[in-house]
Amino acid sequence: MREQVIVRVGAKVLVPFIILFGLYVHFHGDYSPGGGFQAGVILAAAFVLYGLVYGLDAVQRVLPPAFVQACAALGVMVFAGVGVLTMFLGGNFLGYGVLAHDPEHGQHYGIIGVEAGVVITVFGVMVSIFYLFAGRGRRSG
């Protein structure tokens, strides 16, 4: 696909908007359909598209495999970290009410926090798996 001008330019134009949409789906997940999982997949799709059109080396210069693998683990830690934080603030594990003076605001912060963990994990997992599939055939044939 490296010679296809329309595909190359189209992909380059689309990638920032896909990333923006992914962030919108995450941060607007309280008010509209969507949430962490969908946002993570959409963010990953942006980089998968870039990798499909420009090749694995180009996308791995932007997102090294070690980075996305770390993301996969980091997201789980963020999720559990929010739970531990609420425990330290005197609440139950993942009881977000204690995160702010008003329990409703605390719920907002907590939900955005754990959803951010989901986004990071799903994004890291999807991109890692894509790297593994795409990179497998290159050396070992």
Binding site: Y31, P33, G35, G83, F93, H105, H108, I111, V114
Partner: peptide, 19 residues
Amino acid sequence: GIPNIVTAVLASYRGYDTM
């Protein structure tokens, strides 16, 4: 306090499951 009940259930009521 959020309008999307699916998110409320997933992230808050069932936060442990989602983890």
